[in-house]
Amino acid sequence: MKPTSDQPEESHAHDTHWVETTVARYQAPLTRYATRLLGDTERARDVVQDSFARLLAQPRDAVDGHAVEWLFTVCRHRALDVLRKEGRIMRFEEGAVDRVADAAPRPGHELERAETHAALLRLIGLLPANQQEVVRLKFQNGFSYKEISRITQLSVTNVGFLIHTAVARLRREWTAQAE
């Protein structure tokens, strides 16, 4: 099997490059996702390393075409294992990366945007854990409903409902804040 001509330039390189690209590109977002599931970065790093190790151990064909979704699925599975072993419920850290949102208004677009983001992140953090997870999978990691369904083992309908509910609630709370 050979590279097709419409693949990006880097795809023609060796697989080592692909591996490195995958890791470089997705280690951080995966760690962020795992941290949310586990509640601390240390354990998240372990789980993420483990997930990449498993990815590399897969025959390429098995994951080709959906490696990122595969990574998130495995990562989630491993994280839940950890939680089960420790007898902890699944949880998410909310508010841990907030910034100040209530300071007096300051000039400058950059600061305003940062404050807007912080305020919105805080609202996201107020959602129930399962809504937060699908919101992050959708809007932070770019997965489709179908992919989220596979990662989380929820039905597509359920995923759609959770996202709909979360988006509506965030919209409502957001416009309420703006007044």
Partner: peptide, 10 residues
């Protein structure tokens, strides 16, 4: 020999 897949996600 295979291409790296088109990776989705952010």
């Amino acid at each position: 020999g295979r291409d790296p897949r088109k990776l989705d996600g952010g």
